[in-house]
Simulated scan of single mutants.
Amino acid sequence: MNLRGKQKRYLRSQAHTMRPLFQIGKDGIDQKWIKQVNDALEKRELIKVNILNNCLLEVDEVKEYIEANSNIQVVQTIGHTLVLFKQSSKKNNRSYSIEVAKI
């Protein structure tokens, strides 16, 4: 699902009150971390990720790595926080993607 501007705006508004679910520290990110995030997105569809100050990677590098190595979309980056979205493959877990499809 390729997101348009209005769809991203809706997802940003939904993520506004969320707290970060994952953190990226000095160890950086790898395929194991991507799998854990992917599993969380399978249940929630929308999460926030916080990049800690001791992380050796820049925000843009993290964003590029996530988008290149998975089908997760980065909806927004604010400072050291990323908002990630992925449509769930299970219909029971789809809440945000149903609303996004209507926009």
Rank of each mutant, 00 (worst) to 15 (best):
M1K: 14
N2V: 06
L3R: 03
G5I: 06
R9F: 14
Y10H: 14
L11S: 03
L11T: 00
A15H: 02
A15S: 15
H16I: 11
M18F: 07
R19K: 14
P20N: 10
Q23K: 14
I24G: 02
I24T: 01
G25H: 10
K26D: 06
K26L: 11
D27L: 04
G28F: 04
G28W: 07
I34T: 07
I34L: 15
K35S: 13
V37M: 13
N38L: 15
D39N: 10
A40V: 01
L41G: 00
L41P: 00
E42D: 12
E45T: 01
I47F: 03
I47N: 03
K48Y: 09
K48F: 09
K48E: 13
K48G: 08
I51E: 11
N53V: 03
C55K: 04
C55Q: 07
C55V: 04
L56C: 09
L56H: 09
L57F: 14
E58A: 08
V59L: 11
E61T: 04
K63S: 10
Y65K: 04
E67M: 03
N69Q: 05
N69I: 00
S70G: 04
N71D: 13
N71I: 04
N71M: 07
I72R: 02
T77V: 09
H80P: 03
H80R: 10
H80F: 06
L82C: 03
L82M: 12
L84K: 13
K86N: 03
S89G: 07
K91A: 13
K91Q: 08
R94L: 02
S95D: 11
S97D: 01
V100H: 06
V100G: 08
A101F: 07
K102G: 14
